[in-house]
């Protein structure tokens, strides 16, 4: 027997919402999904009229849906935003080709301007070249650190006011759990924020996550029923161990109680640190000016290692060497030897 939509009570339901368990018709699901995103945007005052907003576009489902919904809402509620798509090309042969295709299709379909910035242009190194030097085992360090700044550097280049990313509720909940598992209280405290002001650890351009409360499963359903094309861009290299465990755990939690994803975020939003708990002091990188708790930011250290042919420089904790790197002094032969050997 066909199930009726619990919202309009006249159409036939085509799906069961993963978030609430209600049966909805296509139209009511679209409306609910878009309306929820709209409320996330307005209640947290994510944007101001007239701003230029870059959507971090990877060609994956999250950013594809984000771009589509933002375009719809910008028109429906007259936000008055100039939206554009911003993509990063890491220079991994065969990896980005398809996803950049997907982004280009988004550009045409949604009629949004697209800007692609490449690692080569930003850092002078492609990921392929990095892998050659550091091996597959360690390159996720590079790809994560570089990507974080790449979006920001690209945004600065294009003179945009804000960046928004496709992080969804599952991503946020996963990060809460991961930070508990590794005892990272400072990040635990920050990771549920829906927006970060410029000058934070992510760069100089303010960022926000309009899909923060959207379940990953609903994003997939939305893309499916809207027939949006995306490329599954799981990173070709495995995520780090903590995140892998946190992700598997979250999936199990969701299976037991679907609200668990929102419940974990609620917990994260209501945690607070004891006064006097040491938070890392935020300073700026003395080479490139980005936020860094050390004299040199991670990406400058990584770059220095690559350029000197000492890739290990960026992979361990070698803060005591920063002074000499800054002064462009050579390392001792023993140190050099240590920084060279890498497991492949």
């Amino acid at each position: 027997m066909p199930v009726q939509c619990s919202s309009c009570a006249c159409s036939r339901a085509v799906l069961k919402r993963p978030k609430t368990g209600h049966s909805l018709c296509k139209g009511c699901f679209f409306w609910a999904f878009e309306e929820e995103t709209h409320r996330t945007i307005t209640s947290a005052r994510l944007f101001d009229r007239g701003e230029t907003v870059a959507i971090g576009a990877s060609g994956g489902k999250d950013s594809t849906v984000l771009a589509y919904v933002l375009k719809v809402l910008n028109e429906r509620y007259d936000y008055g935003l100039n939206l554009l798509l911003l993509s990063v090309d890491e220079g991994i042969t065969g990896y980005r080709d398809h996803s950049l295709e997907a982004v280009k299709r988004n550009q045409q379909q949604y009629d949004l301007p697209l800007k692609i910035v490449s690692y080569e242009e930003l850092y002078g190194w492609t990921m392929d070249a990095i892998v050659k030097q550091v091996g597959v085992k360690n390159n996720c360090t590079f790809c994560g650190v570089f990507r974080r700044q790449a979006l920001d550097r690209g945004a600065v280049m294009l003179n945009v006011d804000k960046i928004c990313t496709g992080h969804n509720a599952d991503d946020v909940a996963e990060t809460v759990l991961m930070n508990v598992l590794r005892g990272d209280v400072a990040r635990l405290n920050r990771c549920t924020a829906v927006s970060t002001a410029g000058g934070g650890s992510d760069g100089v351009v303010p960022r926000c996550k309009p899909l923060k409360y959207a379940y990953e499963k609903e994003i997939v359903l939305y893309a499916y029923f809207k027939k949006l094309h995306y490329f599954s861009t799981e990173c070709v290299y495995s995520p780090n161990a903590y995140r892998g465990h946190a992700r598997a755990f979250l999936k199990d939690l969701e299976a037991v109680r679907p609200s668990a994803i929102a419940d974990v975020i609620h917990s994260g939003e209501n945690l607070s640190l004891k006064e006097g708990v040491k938070m890392p002091v935020q300073g700026t990188c003395s080479r490139c000016g980005y936020i860094s708790s050390q004299a040199l930011c991670k990406s400058c250290v990584l770059l220095e290692g690559l350029n000197r042919g000492l890739p290990k420089l960026g992979i361990g904790k070698h803060h005591r060497l920063h002074g000499r790197i800054l002064a462009r002094q050579p390392l001792t032969p023993v140190e050099e030897e240590k920084m060279k050997t890498l497991e492949f």
């Binding site: 919202s7 309306e35 929820e36 975020i265």
Partner: peptide
């Protein structure tokens, strides 16, 4: 009672789904 919170967002989802 912060409108920008997970608990408020969940409530909104419930109510939207119930029409």
């Amino acid at each position: 009672a912060d409108a920008a919170s997970a608990s408020h967002a969940s409530l909104i989802s419930e109510r939207l789904s119930r029409g």
